[in-house]
Design a protein around this nucleic acid. Structure first.
Lengths: 351, 351
DNA sequence: ACGCTTGCGGCAAGCGGTTGCCAAAAGTTG
DNA sequence: CAACTTTTGGCAACCGCTTGCCGCAAGCGT
């Protein structure tokens, strides 16, 4: 852009009929007979301009079908009106719900969402954070794979909130799996299970370690025999290997890192003729799409995932506009509970 | 921004320690001892600048941790390097796969994806198209709910490609359900079914009418007794009503608009003690996440959904850069096939 | 050695808005 | 009616980057 030629203002290059030039703020100003600055103000700070003038401007704008360029706006104002949401795996239904939540809340605030799939990779996450620095006003990191140090550093330089990843350095919304994990173990124990197994997910996942920790502590306290297998990639396809390993441990019940893994196990066990829940009970985590209609329906730890996404955005917003009331919470804890379905039952041989 | 004060260049407003000013192209130019234009060129058209100079610039850039502002870049170049993808329902697994496909291909091309959920609404779709005109170089409309006229108009003013919505006015990638629909009916007939029912989806969905049309024609030709129920919102929750209605028609087999509906029906039928496939066969459409592990596993029409997303982006790209070889196809047809699982079986009473 | 093509880098004018400052207009007050 | 305050709208300087046009200098052919 930016030709220095200004000789014949009416001259138009031939061709290019595709779309007549888009109207700019200048066009609106001209049509309304005011300066561009007035148009700008009329549109973004309505009180700063006389009502009559404003109406004239608004009419001109709509007559021209004018839409301000968010690019230009961002350039001069410094804000992009965009929030980037980073998820480790866009195909995982768990994140779908988060995405839905963030999308909803962002739209309500008039911001646009930039969705990024980091493919479970620390590097990609870091890179995205870096490259999008200029393009987003803030970030929502769902299940960040960053190290504590990285997180601290990033958080120091740009507004961000994490989901399912507590940190002293960044505001977070965490899903309170521990309490439901205890409910899950309670449930298993009451069904007579003595040998339980935790099927673990990604080693870099904060929730994974958190779930394991609670599992271990609580099971130990209850005097259960505990096993741990994994780590597995949290997809249904890893479920087969997990199922086989689980069977070998001799456990009668498994709690899987997430539903995807649990569902994969269900499929494999069925394939091998191992009955669920008669021979083995399975509990998942998250209550994602599909957990209610798999076979058998999955007993799982339900969490208000979508709400978590919404809360995350709210927290981010209050960080971006420190005024507007709204205490800037550093931590939001979302409650969870055990949803009992068909994949858990009495331990084999229990009376 | 844009204070007119330039008196004391070193003066800095107090506070604002959050993040030191981001480096601009100017800083890089200074550090490398060249003009900003040279930096700009070194970074975007590497051949236009001497190798030695380029290296010096690159080093300076990385030393400063420089990331060009896509906003400013877009403002002057006219391109946003962003493509908006509009889907009717972000929570529908079908679109997940599309999103994944587009995201993948866009990233490969160095573009960013703007995801928009239009909530099955014609108005929202139109509005998004309008508001994002300036923010995106092009659009991918998945299962557009626009009318033909609207689509024609929009398509005339901005680059766009549709998925599952053929149109003379816009390039499209359509999933060839018809051929698989015939496979499905063939499958049912060979199992002895005589009375079949189509469970329809959104009336504004092009694929819905398309599927119904083929269903009707082919069934008639085969001399089957046909029924049609609906329309239903394509979610599992509508499946219950659909199942009840289907049972009342007396049909022994149903083909549902999509898997969501089919899965919902499966659940309801099970609840009512109607066995699938013994008492009734169910066929879905799309082969989404979950179709393989529901109970019973769903016989469905599989489509290369993710690939459709990828192809759509490719077509859009060749529209955006008319050069770069690559015939600008106006239509891509994705093949489909019937995947037989457990939800279909011999017609009740058939020998 | 000279005119010419080429390669490389700089100049500066924008892109389309926003916003600090200011002055004219309008409203208040004594 | 003059002096003073408040509105309201315009001016113009950017925001950070791209790009058309130029000019300088090195490479070339004869």
């Amino acid at each position: 852009m930016g030709s220095a030629i200004r000789d014949s203002p009416e001259e138009r290059p031939p061709g290019r009929e595709t779309s007549e030039k888009m109207p700019t703020i200048r066009d609106v100003a001209e049509l309304a007979g005011v300066a561009t600055s007035t148009v700008s103000r009329a549109l973004s700070k309505p009180d700063r301009v006389n009502r009559h003038t404003r109406e004239r401007i608004e009419e001109a704008a709509s007559r021209l079908n004018y839409v301000p360029s968010s690019q230009a706006r961002g350039l001069s104002s410094g804000r992009t009106n965009t929030v980037a949401v980073l998820v480790p795996d866009i195909t995982n239904p768990f994140y779908f719900d988060i995405i839905r939540g963030t999308q909803h809340q962002l739209k309500a605030a008039g911001l646009t969402q930039l969705l990024v799939d980091t493919e479970e990779s620390n590097e990609m996450e870091l890179e995205a954070l870096h490259k999008l620095r200029r393009s987003a006003d803030g970030f929502v990191l769902a299940a960040s794979r960053l190290t504590d140090a990285q997180l601290a550093e990033v958080s120091g330089s740009q507004p961000l909130v994490t989901i399912n990843r507590a940190s002293a350095d960044a505001p977070s919304v965490v899903i309170d799996t521990p309490s439901a994990m205890i409910q899950a173990l309670e449930h298993l124990v009451s069904l007579g299970h003595q040998r339980v197994c935790y099927v673990s997910g990604p080693p870099t996942s904060w929730s994974n370690s958190r779930r394991w920790k609670v599992f271990e502590e609580d099971s130990t306290q209850r005097g259960l025999e505990i096993h741990r297998i994994g780590p597995y990639i949290p997809k249904t396809t890893s479920g087969a290997a997990a199922a086989d390993a689980a069977v070998r441990t001799g456990a009668t019940a498994c709690i899987a890192f997430n539903d995807l893994l649990a569902i994969g196990m269900l499929q494999r066990l069925r394939e091998r003729g191992i009955r669920v829940p008669e021979d083995m009970s399975i509990i998942g985590c998250d209550d994602i799409f599909g957990a209610d209609f798999c076979n058998p329906p999955l007993t799982t730890i339900s969490s208000p995932i979508e709400q978590a996404g919404r809360v995350a955005v709210s927290m981010l917003l209050s960080q971006l506009n420190p005024f507007q009331g709204g205490t800037t919470r550093r931590l939001a804890v979302m409650p969870t509970h055990l949803t009992v379905r068909g994949s858990t039952g009495p331990a084999p041989g229990a009376q």
